[in-house]
């Protein structure tokens, strides 16, 4: 895990906890791919590789290549056994590429961008809810989700991450392909340290219930 700043309590997850979380998010992302494919009426490949952690102040280095300055992001707040701000984030031009598949591949970019906020909210709603509902179903708990909010931003000023050093970001890079076009985005879950502990308690009871630990 990428924790190199001094003074932080490093969250330590063992191999099985990371494995379980990765599988649960993959389950959610798989469900989301299924829903998105119904919208774009074509095959959608959506995969979530491994989980990493970072602090909000490290987000720029942790996440983004310098080539991606402009970002399109959707945030939802979830509350339940733990609270998390879930954020789906795409480089701006990738977001427009997804929309073009959802709406009309022949639509010029300036017209597309009119729909961007609405359509990104819908995509965010599908992907973020699918991930949280996979966790909820498997943990046997319930989360309440806020309405999705769309933000434009750049890597220099990510207003959603206020730099509160007591919060931790759980990061999943996601690869999305529609009609041979490959789009990379990120799923971020901003958790307070106490919420992270509550999440790990859920993971541990889940593993215990399955008889794995």
């Amino acid at each position: 895990m990428a924790f190199d700043e001094s003074g932080h309590d490093e969250p330590t997850l063992d191999e099985l906890q990371l494995d379980a979380l990765g599988e649960l998010f993959n389950l959610g992302v798989g469900r989301a791919a299924n829903s998105l494919s119904l919208i774009v009426k074509d095959e959608v490949e959506l995969s979530a590789p491994s989980i990493s952690f970072a602090y909000p102040s490290q987000i720029t280095q942790a996440l983004l290549d310098s080539e991606f300055k402009e970002l399109s992001m959707v945030a939802m707040d979830f509350s339940g056994p733990f609270e998390a701000r879930a954020v789906l984030l795409f480089p701006e031009r990738n977001a427009l590429a997804i929309l073009s598949h959802m709406l009309d591949p022949n639509m010029p970019p300036e017209e597309l961008s009119e729909f961007e906020q609405e359509a990104m909210c819908e995509i965010g709603n599908i992907i973020l809810n699918a991930c949280m509902s996979a966790l909820a179903d498997e943990f046997g708990v319930e989360f309440m989700g806020s309405l999705p909010e769309h933000h434009f931003s750049d890597t220099e000023s990510l207003p959603l991450f206020g730099g509160d050093q007591k919060e931790v970001l759980l990061i999943l890079q996601i690869h999305l392909s529609i009609r041979q076009e490959r789009i990379n985005g990120h799923l971020l879950f901003l958790l307070s340290v106490s919420s992270l502990h509550a999440l790990l308690t859920c993971v541990d009871s889940y593993l215990t219930r399955l008889g794995i630990r």
Partner: peptide, 9 residues
Amino acid sequence: CTANIQDAV
């Protein structure tokens, strides 16, 4: 074994 059961797949 997958959660992603799209018609195309």
